[in-house]
Design a protein around this nucleic acid. Structure first.
Lengths: 167, 167
DNA sequence: GTAGCTTGCTTCGAGTTCGAAGCAACTAGG
DNA sequence: CCTAGTTGCTTCGAACTCGAAGCAAGCTAC
């Protein structure tokens, strides 16, 4: 049995399981709140939040999809919903006719502002309150490293269609 | 603005985002592998693995659903699929006619054994390889605490239907 | 320029998800 | 026992998700 596929020891298993379970529970809790408080799904909130966070309040579809780890077709669907509700608007990019720039509308920005406090409260209650101050720093440090590591490896949404980087 | 809803500082935000992003990326990667290697979804694998892990190789539907943070109706659906493929079997519990005991079949156990090495390899490559030995222990310790904290708070699947604890 | 590629997005179909409502088996209180 | 409440699971409908296929705009090399 190679080193790659050798069984995981208790610590490794524990970390992996705990990670997936915590994120899963947290997501469910957050989702419940967002639905009640602003009639938003978790994905929708993520999209709006990411837009609100971006310097210009607008992003290309692809960047948005990659940001939230989401399929492109799924994004088209969700963008349709958000557009219909007047929370975002879409327009072809000036420099590239193919690209669609998604912008947050005032209503969208207002909705984010409306649900954010409750959202934060949930995250605090479930995640942050059970962390010591030191733990928090460690957690974000460690997970940050992991994320960069992961992002460096596989192109998620929009993987190269034919050729790979090296061939 | 109350303490509960005050904005999160950079460290808190970083921890929260990193957590959700890492789990999301990891899940997608694992899912891809499981699909290719054993025609299983992530949920299905979790269900089988949990059964394989249980002392008797069998569990009640509800416990299974709670274990993987999944809706009861969703579990019924997935159990149907797994049953049809001969990976699990279902039978009413002896002591309570309402309960359904789910058992792993030999085929199910074999399939878990088949996909496990690859599964481990993916987890290792994406998650574990980017962790220092010390980080790993810390991560699993911290997340373990968080999980217990979360589990203690809200009854996820199967929340009280009518009355609440206090009224 | 133009043929052949790559890229950005959408459409489509099939499969999956959830919560609400429903049904049967247990349980408590009289 | 009966009645009312609770619990375990399934059914149902509506919504969401994904990847494959499709289409148009951009790029490259001749």
């Amino acid at each position: 049995m190679s080193r790659e596929t050798a069984p995981l020891d208790a610590g490794q298993l524990g970390a992996y399981f705990a990670l997936m379970e915590v994120s899963s529970l947290l997501q469910h809790a957050v989702e419940e709140h967002l639905r009640a408080d602003g009639d938003l799904s978790y994905v929708q909130f993520q999209l709006l939040a990411r837009l609100a966070d971006s310097p210009e309040g607008r992003l290309r579809m692809t960047d948005l999809a990659d940001g939230v780890v989401y399929s492109r077709s799924g994004l088209t669907y969700q963008a349709g919903l958000l557009d219909r509700r007047g929370l975002i608007s879409r327009a072809p990019a000036a420099d590239d006719e193919r690209s669609v720039m998604v912008s947050l509308t005032d209503a969208g920005r207002a909705l984010v502002a409306q649900v954010l406090p409750g959202h934060i409260a949930v995250v605090r209650r479930l995640l942050l309150d059970s962390l010591e101050k030191g733990d928090l720093a460690i957690l974000s440090g460690v997970l940050g490293t992991v994320r960069d590591h992961m992002r460096a490896l596989p192109p998620r949404s929009a993987k190269p269609r034919a050729s790979r980087r090296s061939r």
